[in-house]
């Protein structure tokens, strides 16, 4: 679909949120609570933290929750009944005020859950998700979207992208059919405009390397000692994967209470030693450096081969969350000039 250009006043955005609520859609937006900004359910605009550069955690839990029931089971005297989770019961969700990198993060995540095997649950959630992002006018020292094919005004992954062009007005780009459906249902709120140059309203994020260059380099780096050097201070906590919008690894577990139980999937991380531990006791990724190598290879090599998609959108969340200040952009830059 060709992008449609519109204008949206902030008061109109406020009305839009209320209308979403009336239509039974759940709106999630960055909300500051106890000093931390993360995605939370909102019903009015004034709860939203528009200033936050990047929420602590990504928006991925909207389609890939921390813990998600897959099925439930119940044992009776001579039988076991199994019930799949009802994928039609998922709510319509709007992610509002996500950043272009958050939106872009849904693309590699979708690739993980839809290549070879199409994951029904994930796709059902994704289908009911509408992403209304807001371009970044500020960036910090951790942001590097421009080095991984993104930019502070990137439309990829968003259904509508808003760019603040004045204190009261957003320039709205209607990117997808889902976005258009919102426009069509709320024509009174959007005004016509011709295309607007967003650049003056966007943060300046310097490009340090290219994802393609990393991909190229990795061909010869599997055995390199660069991984040992880079991973020295990594404590193997896995926090990086948990906050990453593009990390899709999960574990599957059963939990029961008496005769009833559920099977769920929950987040996991390749940073853990246990992640690859075999029953035999053998661990193919014994050292932290091998796990760090996996993280980079998965995002910049394997995912490109299998899914034609890089697994990093340059949001910098992993670096912000890392207790040991493992700055992924810095490490990638080092790889690119290795």
């Amino acid at each position: 679909m060709e992008i449609l250009n519109k204008l949206l006043d902030k008061t109109a955005l406020s009305t839009l949120i209320e209308r979403f609520g009336k239509a039974g859609k759940e709106v999630y937006a960055p909300v500051k609570e106890n000093g931390i900004t993360d995605f939370a359910k909102v019903d009015t605009i004034d709860k939203i933290d528009f200033e936050c550069i990047a929420t602590k955690q990504s928006a991925k839990s909207l389609v890939f929750p921390r813990v998600e029931k897959i099925l439930s089971f119940e044992k009776s005297y001579d039988d076991i009944s199994v019930k799949n989770v009802d994928i039609n019961a998922f709510p319509e969700v709007v992610a509002l005020g996500s950043r272009p990198c958050d939106a872009a993060g849904f693309i590699p995540l979708d690739a993980i859950f839809s290549t070879d095997h199409v994951d029904e649950i994930f796709n059902a959630r994704l289908k009911k998700l509408t992403v209304i992002s807001i371009s970044c006018k500020k960036a910090d020292e951790y942001c590097f979207c421009t080095s991984v094919n993104g930019n502070p005004g990137n439309t990829a992954g968003s259904d509508i992208l808003l760019t603040e062009i004045s204190d009261s007005t957003y320039f709205a780009e209607i990117v997808t059919e889902k976005g258009k459906a919102i426009l069509d249902a709320n024509t009174d709120l959007f005004k016509d405009t011709s295309a607007i140059d967003k650049t003056p309203h966007l943060a300046d994020v310097k490009q340090e390397f290219t994802a393609e260059a990393i991909n190229e380099k990795l061909n010869n780096l599997f055995e390199s000692d660069i991984w040992d050097k880079q991973a020295l201070r990594c404590v193997g906590c896995g926090a990086c994967a948990y906050v990453c919008p593009a990390c899709g690894c999960f574990d599957i577990q059963d939990e029961n209470k008496g005769n009833k139980g559920i099977r769920y999937r929950c987040w996991d991380s390749c940073g853990f030693g246990l992640f690859t531990l075999h029953t035999s006791g053998h661990n193919p990724r014994e050292k932290q450096s091998q796990r760090w190598r996996q993280r980079i290879f998965h995002k910049f090599s394997y995912q490109m081969v299998q899914q034609k998609q890089f697994g990093c959108v340059g949001c910098g969340r992993c670096s912000r969350a890392c207790p040991a200040d493992m700055n992924i952009a810095e490490h990638l830059k080092e790889i690119s000039i290795n």
Binding site: Q57, R66, V235, G236, C237, A241, W267, S269, A321, P323
Partner: peptide, 12 residues
């Protein structure tokens, strides 16, 4: 309730 069980607290 916001704990994601990453165990960073344990690892550090």
């Amino acid at each position: 309730s916001t704990c994601v069980k990453c165990y960073a607290c344990r690892a550090s």
